[in-house]
């Protein structure tokens, strides 16, 4: 009688059908994608001497090059700051419009989110290539690229924050007949300001990283020199650029992390 109450494993559980199924699917996908990408483990090891040669040449940085790249490095940071700011300014109205607790019009909200989703699918370098074609080679193309890239990212982060706010102050102001703008200014903004600044800094970090390679396609900043040094096979200079970039990124990350900790 007790045996009848024992949980019985179904046929699928007993033979681990799900586990084997997933494993088989993964193996098939792995085989398929290695066929498609011509992965050849042997080739990597037979060409290892070339790769080692590259590493050796990169491990002798030509430090003199540092004086050349300081100005473009500064330009890179300036591009990131401006791009993030422009993106944020445009993101705020879109974020307010996409927040479910502020805008009750489902169609408007859905359309807004669709636009934001579409913007976020575009990789930054791809945008850079297009804007270089429009604005010509230089930092303007970089700033616009970063602005659009941060617009997509910030508006999503912002509307998710707005959706978590306490609705009490809003209802109080609504009940005394305040206008939408007044409500946003006095009831919404004070609740979200710190998180906004924190996400702004986070996006700035990402944009500093992104802006260091945008120049590879001509969109200004340190990337221009990266491309030049690689094309001239001047790997010592490449190493200096990479090291300097890493230092700058780490400094910006450190400052931003500190500020965000103070804020939240």
């Amino acid at each position: 009688m007790t045996n009848a109450n024992l949980p019985r494993r179904s046929w699928i559980q007993r033979w681990h059908v799900k586990g084997f199924g997933w494993t088989a699917l993964m193996v098939l996908l792995l085989i398929g994608s290695s066929k498609m990408t011509d992965v050849n483990v042997g080739m990597f090891f037979s060409n290892l001497d070339q790769f080692a040669d590259l590493i050796v040449r990169m491990s002798n940085p030509t430090w003199d090059y540092l004086s050349v790249i300081i100005q473009p490095l500064i330009e890179t940071i300036q591009m990131a700051i401006l791009g993030t700011t422009i993106g944020t300014i445009f993101a705020i109205p879109f974020a307010l419009m996409a927040a479910g607790n502020l805008v009750h019009n489902k169609f408007l909200r859905g359309f807004d989110r669709l636009v934001l989703d579409l913007v976020r699918t575009l990789p930054d370098l791809l945008l850079a290539a297009i804007f270089v074609a429009i604005f010509g080679i230089g930092s303007t193309a970089g700033v616009i690229t970063l602005a659009i890239f941060s617009f997509g990212m910030i508006s999503k982060l912002f509307y998710e924050v707005i959706e978590t706010i306490d609705m009490g102050p809003l209802e109080a102001m609504e009940s005394v007949g305040a206008s939408k703008i007044t409500i946003i200014w006095y009831a919404v903004l004070p609740q979200i300001m710190n998180q906004f600044v924190s996400y702004f800094l986070y996006t700035l970090e990402i944009n500093v990283r992104a802006s260091t390679v945008l120049g590879y396609l001509g969109a200004g900043g340190i990337g221009v020199y990266l491309q030049r040094s690689l094309n001239e096979f001047n790997y010592g200079a490449t190493a200096v650029i990479i090291l300097a970039t890493i230092v700058v990124v780490l400094i910006i990350d450190g400052i931003s992390n500190h500020l965000r900790r103070v804020l939240l």
């Binding site: 990597f44 060409n47 070339q50 590259l54 990283r209 260091t212 390679v213 990479i242 970039t245």
Partner: peptide, 15 residues
């Protein structure tokens, strides 16, 4: 922090 594009270029030299 090492840029992915640079990694790609390095591996292009190798393979």
């Amino acid at each position: 922090t090492f840029p992915e594009i640079v990694l790609a270029i390095m591996f292009i030299k190798a393979v």
